[in-house]
Design a protein around this nucleic acid. Structure first.
Length: 485
DNA sequence: TGAAATGTTGGGGCG
DNA sequence: ACGCCCCAACATTTC
C-alpha cells in the first residue's frame, strides 16, 4: 500500500491476462497514485508461446471493452508493441514514473518472464509491485504432507478447498487520472488481430460477447440457468448446463474468486443444488490444478509428464490429422466436436475428451499435434489447462486416464447425445438419419441412407479407422509402455 | 471423467 | 416336479 508520499506520482499499470476493472488488485493499487498509465503490450519477445488465432480475435474484442472502461475512468489504455522490458522502461521514462504494477501470472514461461522482468526493472531502479493474479490459491504454496507438489487431483483439491478463504473484495476505482504527458497509443485495428481473408470469425461473433461485461452476463445467466442440474447435465453437449466461462477466465475478464463469491451468494436461491455447486467448483479446481502442475513442471506443454511415453510409437500425422481437424473422420460425435470448435472457437468438455482420445488412441497421433490445434482454434486456450488436459487424455499426464481407457465414439455419442441433437447441429449432412444410426451411419441399411440423402464416402466420410481394429492397435502400442516401466 | 470380455445369477420355456 | 438350456441382467476382471 503506497503511503501519502506517492500521491504526486504516476504509476504504470501493465495489463496482461487480467483484462478487467473489477477485482483487479494492481489497478486498485494504481488508483492510489495521482496518475495512472495503463498499458497493454503486444510482446515481440519469443520466450512465451504466442496467442493462437482464436484468442487473438478474443483479445481484440476484450481490449476494445477494457479500453472503453478505462476511457470512462479517465486513464486511456496505451497499446504498444515490443519487448516488455524495453517498452516498460521507455514508457516509464516518458511519463516520469518509477512505479510499475502488474498482476502475477502463474507457471511456465509467463511466470519466468515476469520474475526476470521484475528483477531487471528493479535493478534499473524501478519500484515494481506485483499482485495476486487469477487463481484461488498460490500454486507454489500448496504442498503435500511430505512437502512435494500434488500429482493427483482429488487430494490436491481437498487441500485447496479445505484451506480456502475468499479474500475481501478489492475496491474498484471510480475515477483515474492521466498524466499530462500521456504517451501515444498504437491503433488496435493495426494489430491485425482479427481475421480478414478469409473472415472465419462469423461463428465466434455469433457465439460470444468478449469483455468484462460479457463475462458477468455469462455468469449471471449460468447462475440463473445451467448451474441447476450441472452435476449430471454438464456432460451433455446437447444441453445448456456448461458455464462457458472459460474464455472469459482465460482473458482474465473474471476471476475464480468472483465466481466463487457469486456461488456463495446464490446458494439456496435456486442456483443449483449443493452437489451442482460442488461439481462446478471442482471444475474450476481442475483449472487450478493445471496451473499447479505448470508451476512444478514448466515444460508440460512440450514434454511428457510421464517419461515412459517418450518412446511411445506415435504415428506420423499424415492425412488423418487433417481429417480430424476438419471434422471428417466419419465418426459423427468426433466430427461434430471438431466442427463446433472450428465454428465457435469452443468445444464442449465431454466432446474434447472424446476427440482427444480419438486422435491419440484411434489415430495414434501425438497429443502435441492436437494440443497445437486446440491452442490455435480455442478462444479459451490456456497455457496450463490445454497441455495438461491433453496429456491427461493421452495417458502421459498427471493423474491421467490410463492409456487403455479408450473411448468408444459410438457409445459416447449414444450416451451423451442420445437424440443426436448435437451431431445434427454440426454435421447437418447426416441430419436426416434416424436416431438409431446417427452415431454410426455406416451400419445403416442402404435404403435408410438413401432416404436420408447420404452416400457414404461422398456426402459424408466413411470411418477413417475401424473402431475395433484401432482399439486393438492402440492397446498393443500400450504394451511398449508397460514393458518400459 | 471406459469398454469389452468374462463370470455369475436367476427366471422362464420346455421336454 | 424336475433338470436343462437359454439368456438377460448384473458383477467382476482385464485391457
Amino acid at each position: 500500500m503506497p503511503d501519502t508520499s506517492d500521491k504526486k506520482k504516476t504509476a504504470l499499470l501493465w495489463f496482461r491476462e487480467d483484462l478487467r476493472i473489477a477485482e483487479n488488485a494492481a489497478l486498485s493499487a494504481a488508483s492510489k497514485y495521482s496518475a495512472v498509465v495503463p498499458v497493454f503490450i503486444r510482446t515481440t519477445q519469443t520466450k512465451m508461446r504466442s496467442n493462437g488465432a482464436a484468442r487473438d480475435w478474443w483479445l481484440h474484442k476484450s481490449l476494445e471493452g477494457l479500453s472503453k472502461s478505462l476511457d470512462e475512468l479517465g486513464a486511456p489504455l496505451i497499446l504498444t508493441t515490443g519487448d516488455p522490458y524495453v517498452v516498460l522502461g521507455e514508457l516509464a521514462k516518458k511519463c516520469h514514473t518509477e512505479t510499475i504494477l502488474w498482476n502475477r501470472r502463474y507457471g511456465g514461461a509467463a511466470a519466468e518472464l515476469d520474475e526476470e522482468l521484475a528483477d531487471r526493472l528493479t535493478d534499473d531502479g524501478f519500484d515494481v509491485q506485483t499482485f495476486p493474479g487469477a487463481l484461488l490459491h498460490d500454486p507454489a504454496a500448496i504442498k503435500t504432507g511430505s512437502g512435494k507438489f500434488y500429482k493427483v487431483f482429488t487430494p490436491f483439491w481437498k487441500a485447496v478447498e479445505s484451506d480456502l478463504e475468499l479474500p475481501d473484495s478489492i475496491p474498484q476505482p471510480e475515477k483515474l487520472s492521466s498524466p499530462s504527458n500521456t504517451p501515444k497509443s498504437e491503433k488496435l485495428s493495426e494489430w491485425n488481430l482479427l481475421p480478414s481473408e478469409p473472415d472465419w470469425a462469423g461463428g465466434l461473433r455469433d457465439t460470444w460477447t468478449p469483455g468484462e461485461a460479457g463475462a458477468h452476463e455469462r455468469l449471471k445467466s449460468f447462475l440463473d440457468g445451467g448451474i441447476t442440474g450441472y452435476a449430471s447435465g454438464r456432460d451433455r453437449p446437447d444441453g445448456e448446463n456448461t458455464s462457458r466461462l472459460s474464455p472469459h477466465l482465460a482473458a482474465g475478464e473474471i476471476t475464480p474468486v468472483q465466481i466463487f463469491r457469486a456461488l456463495d451468494n446464490a446458494s439456496g436461491k435456486g442456483s443449483g443444488s449443493n452437489e451442482d455447486q460442488a461439481v462446478f467448483r471442482k471444475e474450476i479446481g481442475w483449472r487450478e490444478f493445471s496451473h499447479h502442475l505448470l508451476v512444478h513442471s514448466p515444460k508440460i506443454d512440450s514434454e511428457n509428464f510421464d517419461d515412459r511415453f517418450d518412446d511411445f510409437p506415435w504415428n506420423d500425422a499424415g492425412d488423418d490429422l487433417g481429417a480430424w481437424q476438419k471434422g471428417m473422420t466419419g465418426y459423427p460425435i468426433v466430427d461434430a466436436g471438431m466442427r463446433e470448435l472450428w465454428q465457435t472457437g469452443w468445444m464442449h468438455n465431454r466432446v474434447r475428451m472424446i476427440v482427444a482420445s480419438f486422435l491419440t488412441k484411434h489415430l495414434l497421433i501425438h497429443w502435441k499435434k492436437g494440443e497445437d490445434w486446440f491452442w490455435d482454434t480455442l478462444v479459451d486456450a490456456d497455457s496450463a489447462s490445454n497441455p495438461s488436459n491433453w496429456q491427461w487424455v493421452a495417458g502421459s499426464g498427471a493423474d491421467a486416464a490410463p492409456y487403455f481407457r479408450i473411448f468408444n465414439p459410438i457409445i459416447q455419442g449414444e450416451k451423451f447425445d442420445p437424440d443426436g441433437i448435437y451431431v445434427r447441429e454440426y454435421v447437418p449432412e447426416i441430419a436426416a438419419l434416424p436416431d438409431k444410426y446417427i452415431h454410426h451411419p455406416w451400419d445403416a441399411p442402404n435404403d435408410v441412407l438413401e432416404d436420408a440423402g447420404i452416400t457414404l464416402g461422398e456426402t459424408y466420410p466413411k470411418p477413417i479407422v475401424d473402431h475395433k481394429e484401432a482399439r486393438e492397435r492402440a492397446l498393443s502400442a500400450f504394451d511398449t509402455i508397460k514393458e518400459a516401466s
